[in-house]
Amino acid sequence: MLVLTRKPGQQIMIGDSIVINLVEVQGDNVRLAIEAPREVKIYRGEIYKAIMEENKKAAAQIADIDLTDLINK
């Protein structure tokens, strides 16, 4: 893992098509502006992680599920 120190107004380049601009730092909030090609997906880590976790749970339960009670509602 590469760890860099940056100041507001400075950038990080990843490859030659992704630029991360550090816009501002206020307390414990860091504001980033990201330029990337359309095909590069950008998500807040916790949202993507939450969906991965939920998908794993959704996949782990199915084998003998009985929905009779739900359907008859």
Partner: peptide, 19 residues
């Protein structure tokens, strides 16, 4: 939407509306 069941009680079933 994908559904998740935390235990055995199907009344507790949840739907993932975020994705």
């Amino acid at each position: 939407v994908l559904l998740t069941l935390p235990g055995k009680d199907i009344k507790q079933m949840t739907a993932n509306l975020l994705a």
